[in-house]
Design a protein around this nucleic acid. Structure first.
Length: 277
DNA sequence: CTTTACGCCTGACGGC
DNA sequence: TGCCGTCAGGCGTAAA
């Protein structure tokens, strides 16, 4: 499932094939994504991709108008939980669940594949920051606006469990279910602890481990990046580093305690009974 | 306002 | 072997 590191890896993987290239054609095979693919994505046809950005788990392609009067904006892609992008030859037969594709003038082709169709492929009107899906998002976890002090200040008087707090995209973006459990374990914080009852010092630790776990995963994403265009590209680059996720009943690598599973906010949550308080 | 539940959807998996 | 129920998950939205 694409978390922030995999989206970042995806961005780096598709950039060489898209940057400064013209979108010659846009094909929609199945518009039934989480948000139906609208005809407006055709605004990008004939335009060049002059920039690729990531905001939270959204990929943004900048496509300036060719002549005055055309709309300013670009394409927005979200991978949902089963989406992926790959660069391929447009002559190759599409796979099952290849819903949208960009045919570049270079002859390369970007295909959006998403079995569960929780993803998004849509058009945004400039400025992208004002789009309803990203206008109210919190800071980037790897950016300068995210800090222990920020988490501490935002959480005062909140009774919500700290795991739900850091998974709230209005608080901070890109901390998915897996990394929330992993980061809290590394920080020694119990996932059920009320967010408003955690000290500044502990939030400073949490800030650091969130950065570390995401940066580490992005580095390992480089492995995924290399076979990104390969027909049999495999996800799961982070699986070997998981310390608590999906390890219920097993022993904690740090203290030997038992890893338990509980449901918080309708999500599977894993933690160690020995070293998380 | 905060908090919780639900729905979208397919594939993997276990039970029979 | 195949059928069926259950679960997983990002995240917006409705409901409480």
């Amino acid at each position: 499932m694409p978390e922030l590191p995999e989206v970042e890896t995806t961005l780096r993987g598709i950039e060489p094939a898209l940057l400064d290239r013209k979108i010659a054609d846009i094909k929609v095979r199945n518009p039934a994504l989480r948000i139906p693919v609208a005809r407006s994505i055709q605004h990008a046809r004939g335009r060049s991709v002059v920039g690729l950005r990531r905001r939270a788990k959204y990929l943004l392609l900048d496509t300036p108008p060719l002549e005055t009067g055309q709309p300013e904006g670009g394409l927005m892609i979200h991978l949902g939980m089963s989406g992926s992008l790959r660069i391929t030859d447009p002559a190759t037969a599409p796979r099952k669940h290849d819903h949208v594709e960009l045919v570049m003038d270079s002859g390369a082709c970007l295909r959006f594949n998403d079995p569960r169709r929780f993803g998004i492929f849509t058009w945004w009107d400039a400025p992208a920051e004002d789009h309803s899906l990203i206008a109210h998002l919190g800071p980037e976890p790897l950016g300068p606006d995210f800090s222990g002090k920020y988490l501490y200040t935002r959480s005062r008087n909140l009774r919500v469990a700290v795991k739900n707090f850091i998974m709230n995209s209005q608080v901070v973006v890109g901390v998915g279910n897996i990394y929330a459990s992993e980061a809290l374990h590394l920080a020694g914080i119990h996932p059920s602890r009320p967010a408003g009852r955690i000290s500044l010092a502990r939030y400073e630790v949490l800030d650091q481990v969130i950065r570390e776990v995401l940066e580490s995963a992005i580095r390992q994403g480089g492995t995924t990046l290399r076979d990104f265009t390969a027909p049999d590209a495999q996800p799961g680059y982070f699986a070997q580093d998981l310390r608590v996720y999906d390890r219920a009943g097993k022993a904690c690598f740090k203290c030997g305690g038992e890893i338990r599973r509980k449901v918080l906010g309708q999500r599977a949550t894993y933690f160690c009974v020995g070293c998380q308080r």
